[in-house]
């Protein structure tokens, strides 16, 4: 199990945004987290990636307790994420967005001197990664000038540039056209199959989730109400009731 979440909890005022969440993610798998809006999925990501400290509970990455690690330390350890609200460097060129992540991964963000060869290697790798998400033809554009779907793809490319072992993607398909959604979905599958990358993904499109996932964790009101392979989730009574009462399709 590459990621283990044990009893993570977080309250905002009186609201238990995440309540004693527990589940485990197998290496080289696609693990989806679903649940109605406000179920606590993004907060859970924030707890795992060190964006906010949990009230209690632990997260274990590759058998190391990472609870309260800072996001930059986690990124360097091979845990990357993308954001529900696209988070890129809008004023910088597309390829520089990716190059920044490559240099951070290589630990040369503080360098004041870079050989021409190193610079070319970083640039070449950035091109490769951009090609993977279909952005190579826009490498020189200003990131903020990209269409919404491309900005989301860039967010993923930045995550991939870290060569992570585990990547958490918060609604990567949101606001994308049907064609782009298929492209990103097959990218996620490809990442698992060719690179052995583990992907934890929050997604609302249940059909897509059933097709894509090796395992699904269902959250409601901050708690995990089901955690099983797709077939079992389909037949789960608690999940069905969440579908009926919650705004799943949102």
């Amino acid at each position: 199990m590459i990621l283990k979440v044990e009893g993570l909890s977080k309250s905002f005022g009186g609201l238990k945004a995440v309540n004693d969440a527990r589940f485990a993610v197998a290496e080289a798998s696609i693990h989806s987290i679903i649940g109605p809006n406000g179920a606590g999925k993004t907060t859970l990501f924030n707890l795992i990636t060190g964006a906010i400290p949990p009230d209690s509970g632990t997260a274990t990455f590759d058998n190391v307790d990472i609870t309260r690690w800072t996001p930059d330390r986690l990124a360097r350890a091979g845990l990357a994420r993308t954001f529900q609200r696209t988070s890129i460097f809008k004023e910088l060129p597309v390829d520089e967005n990716v190059a920044l992540a490559i240099r951070a991964r290589e630990g040369i963000s503080r360098a004041v001197w870079q050989s021409r060869g190193d610079a070319q290697m970083v640039a070449a790798e950035a091109r490769d990664i951009l090609a993977r998400v279909g952005l190579d033809s826009r490498a020189n554009a200003k990131a903020g000038d990209l269409a919404h779907g491309f900005q989301r793809a860039l967010d993923i490319a930045i995550g991939l540039a870290l060569k992570p072992r585990l990547i958490l993607m918060d609604e990567p398909l949101a606001g994308m056209s049907r064609g782009d959604r298929e492209t990103v979905a097959s990218l996620i599958t490809m990442l698992r199959d060719t690179l052995g990358l583990t992907v934890v993904v929050v997604e609302h499109d249940v059909g897509m989730v059933m097709r894509l996932s090796d395992r699904i964790t269902v959250m409601q009101h901050g708690a995990v109400i089901a955690d099983a392979p797709p077939d079992e989730i389909r037949d789960n009574a608690a999940v069905r009731s969440a579908y009926l009462h919650g705004s799943f399709a949102a």
């Binding site: 990636t49 930059d72 330390r73 990124a75 360097r76 994420r81 809008k90």
Partner: peptide
């Protein structure tokens, strides 16, 4: 320095400090 990796990393902080943190920049 502005054109070096350090200068670029600084600019990324000015642009979007949160994202900079999540790609491993201190």
């Amino acid at each position: 320095i502005r054109r070096s990796p350090l200068g670029r990393a600084w600019l990324s902080i000015r642009e979007n400090a949160e994202r900079a943190r999540f790609i491993g920049i201190d």
